[in-house]
């Protein structure tokens, strides 16, 4: 379990994260959602300690993480797997060596055993015949999956994924989502996923934290999210016209009338892109 208490983070005086708290339980997928620039990546990096928050506390399994010494942090980090938004694969190593790296660094397994494990995780992320390829030779979505394979190769206790399926087709996305969900339950991981993909939210979101301009705007489960009355969250979820239609239909079924609020011009003014 990870507890986040009143995190604040600013860069050069510009506040990016303000007063965010959350309880992220083990064995479930904890999602951080929000539009681009809302602070998801910064929040996740604060939680793993890549950024030092200006104030607030972070607890891993009840232990204070923020004030730990380097060695104590290292011990926690050995149980963390992280998928970066930009994949962060080692350029100088091929796919197989990339995924094997944590195994080589932290286990004393034989080469054969490590190789078996590498192929096992590659298989789980739906990748074949890429062992000898270098990161520069992979597509963006393939890099993502290799990076995810590297993050889960040691069966971490805490798994962080920053947009695991951006750049993936819907089918592969689903495979990745299902994989994340599966291993989370199988190994009782505390999984934290950043995403703005509503499919993922509905697929795996056990706990959802909605960020809006650096603040926690809403939290709840995927059941709560459909019925949420939070306007900002709703316009985030139902951003596309198609989804809006779907929502209308659902409302029609439930209440017998279409909410009068719906109006594309209105939406554009409220939250749409300002160019």
């Amino acid at each position: 379990m990870i507890e986040v208490h009143n995190i604040k983070k600013s860069f050069d005086g510009r506040v990016v994260i303000e007063d965010v708290s959350a309880i992220m339980k083990a064995g479930q997928c904890n999602l951080i959602i929000g539009s681009s620039g809302s602070g998801k990546t910064v929040l996740q990096k604060c939680i793993v300690g890549l950024f030092d928050p200006d104030s607030g506390n972070i607890l891993y399994g009840g232990q204070q993480f923020t004030s730990m010494s380097r060695e104590e942090k290292t011990n926690i980090r050995k149980e963390i797997g992280m998928l970066f938004q930009g994949s962060a694969l080692f350029d100088s190593l091929n796919v197989e060596e990339n995924i094997m790296f944590p195994l080589s660094m932290f286990t004393t397994d034989s080469h054969r055993k490590k190789l078996d494990r590498v192929n096992e995780v590659l298989d789980r992320v739906n990748l074949k015949d890429v062992n000898r390829k270098f990161p520069a030779e992979l597509s963006g979505g393939m890099k993502k999956r290799v990076a995810l394979a590297r993050a889960i190769v040691l069966n971490p206790k805490y798994l962080f994924c920053d947009e695991p399926n951006s750049g993936l087709d819907p089918q592969t996305s689903l495979v990745i989502d299902k994989l994340i969900k599966e291993i989370t339950i199988e190994f009782n991981m505390t999984t934290v996923v950043n995403t703005h993909d509503m499919n993922s939210v509905m697929e795996i979101g056990d706990y959802i934290l909605y960020m809006y301009q650096g603040r926690k705007e809403w939290e709840g489960s995927k059941k709560d999210i459909i019925f949420s009355k939070n306007e900002r969250l709703n316009s985030f979820i139902f951003a596309s016209e198609f989804l809006q239609d779907a929502k209308d239909m659902r409302m029609l079924e439930m209440t017998g009338k279409i909410p009068s609020l719906r109006n594309m011009d209105d939406m554009m003014r409220k939250d749409g892109p300002s160019l």
């Binding site: 990096k45 380097r70 980090r77 992280m82 970066f84 930009g86 694969l89 080692f90 660094m105």
Partner: peptide, 18 residues
């Protein structure tokens, strides 16, 4: 520099490598 900018150093840190 490249490792820093492309977050490879962060990735190593997260694994627990100094």
């Amino acid at each position: 520099g490249n490792m820093r900018v492309s977050e490879q150093i962060d990735a190593l840190e997260i694994m627990g490598v100094n």
